[in-house]
């Protein structure tokens, strides 16, 4: 699919510059994730007119607006439901969901597992910054144990969700994880996820420097992403939810890939063709 003669990636070709300055805080990982996504889209030669970005609510949800495509900023936790309808009605569109850890795993958890189960050809990019940044830094399903948030004043005591294990268990055809610092690897992961015919769940380890980082003395953005680099590695074998790994030692890269039937194809074969016979 890669067009060798194509011009080099220039982010300005893919963003709505007239909306700048953007809303993201200095040091936020979401912007880098957006860059990696657009880079992947460029390399896959996807027509912007056929690109649909569907996002939920929260900091991750606002990212979509800066992308020069058909962008849909939907409701909290439910972008996958909109994306499901959109993709089924318009199989010609490349549908990419941008969501966050709270959006996708808490309020949208039910939609996530069923989207994985159906395996419809949608790419779901979950930007995990371990907190509800937009509402002031509350605890989320991925907040690391013992960390402070505005709703865990004594430190977080809840176990975390491992989104990738969840997605794989629920049936997603393609599952992967990457940190923002490894932007080329992240871009490559997204590229593979989009190209996979089926539901792709991609967890991006982002960082919320301004709210979460500050509250937990995690340092400025460079320190945060460098510590991510030591915790999240492609040569590792741990999972986020494995409490035995201290410090965390979590695997990145492509975590799961299967050729389960894609939903729309299965629908066509089982339903439409049979009815029309």
């Amino acid at each position: 699919m890669l067009n060798k003669t194509k011009a080099a990636f220039e982010i300005r070709d893919y963003i709505r510059e007239d909306l700048f300055p953007h809303f993201m805080c200095p040091g936020c990982g979401h912007g880098i994730a957006m860059r990696a996504l657009l880079w992947a889209i460029h390399d896959l030669n996807i027509d912007k007119d056929k690109l649909a970005i569907v996002s939920g609510i929260g900091c991750s949800g606002r990212v979509g607006a800066y992308i020069d495509a058909n962008t849909f900023h939907t409701t909290h936790g439910r972008p996958l439901t909109f994306a499901t309808g959109l993709k089924l009605a318009r199989p010609d569109l490349q549908v990419i969901v941008i969501t966050g850890d709270g959006d996708c795993l808490a309020i949208g958890g039910n939609h996530l597992i069923h989207a994985c189960r159906r395996n419809l050809d949608i790419t779901c990019l979950m930007l995990n910054n371990e907190t509800y940044g937009m509402t002031g830094g509350q605890v989320s399903p991925t907040t690391t144990r013992d960390r402070y948030t505005t709703t865990t004043p004594e430190g977080n005591y809840e176990p975390v969700f491992d989104a990738c294990e969840l997605a794989q268990g629920a049936g997603a055809g393609f599952v992967g994880r990457e940190i923002t610092l490894q932007t080329p690897s992240l871009k490559s992961l997204i590229q593979q996820g989009i190209a996979h015919p089926g539901f792709s769940f991609l967890e991006v380890i982002s960082d919320c420097t301004e709210v979460y980082g500050r509250k937990n003395d995690l340092g400025e953005s460079p320190q945060m992403v460098l510590s991510q680099k030591s915790e999240f590695r492609s040569d590792s074998y741990g999972m986020i939810a494995d409490e035995v790994f201290q410090p965390r030692n979590v695997k990145t890269g492509v975590l799961h890939k299967s050729d389960r039937p894609e939903y729309a194809e299965a629908y066509q074969q089982r339903i439409t063709d049979r009815v029309k016979k």
Binding site: V54, F82, A83, T84, G85, L88, A89, N110, H114
Partner: peptide
């Protein structure tokens, strides 16, 4: 499509309508 819940059905309906 039978969705996972009522909220999802309404979301899918809007998504499909946005698609035309």
């Amino acid at each position: 499509i039978q969705m996972e819940d009522e909220i999802a059905s309404m979301g899918a309906v809007i998504g499909a309508s946005l698609g035309g």
